[in-house]
Amino acid sequence: MAATFASPAARAEADFLEVRRLGVDAYPTLLLHTAHGTDRLGGPVASADTLTHALDQRVAATTAA
């Protein structure tokens, strides 16, 4: 694991593998990490307003539970 951080190229590769594992297939993508897992909000064509609305809904649902 320490070797991964020693090489920027190895770190970048590890990051790309992680986002693929999370289902990210386009950029920019906003991921919300919660106790229930990782949720993808919006997508590559989402506006700031759309992302804000989606995030507000998730936060409201989390605090209501």
Rank of each mutant, 00 (worst) to 15 (best):
M1E: 11
A2R: 10
A2V: 10
T4D: 03
T4P: 00
F5T: 11
A6N: 13
A6D: 15
S7I: 02
S7Q: 12
S7H: 10
P8V: 00
P8N: 13
A9I: 08
R11Q: 14
R11N: 09
A12C: 06
E13Y: 05
E13N: 12
D15N: 15
F16L: 14
F16W: 11
L17F: 06
E18V: 02
V19I: 15
R20G: 14
R20L: 06
L22P: 00
G23L: 06
V24G: 00
D25Y: 05
D25N: 14
D25M: 11
A26V: 04
A26K: 08
A26L: 06
Y27L: 15
P28F: 08
T29L: 01
T29D: 03
L30A: 05
L30C: 04
L32S: 01
L32Y: 07
H33D: 10
H33F: 12
T34H: 05
T34Q: 09
T34E: 07
A35D: 14
H36T: 11
T38G: 03
D39V: 01
R40F: 05
R40G: 08
R40C: 08
L41P: 01
G42D: 06
G42L: 04
G43E: 05
G43V: 06
P44K: 11
V45P: 00
A46E: 02
A46N: 05
S47W: 02
S47Y: 02
S47G: 15
A48L: 07
T50V: 11
T50P: 00
T52V: 03
T52Y: 04
H53A: 09
H53V: 00
A54I: 01
Q57R: 12
V59F: 04
A60F: 01
A60W: 02
T63L: 13
A65G: 15
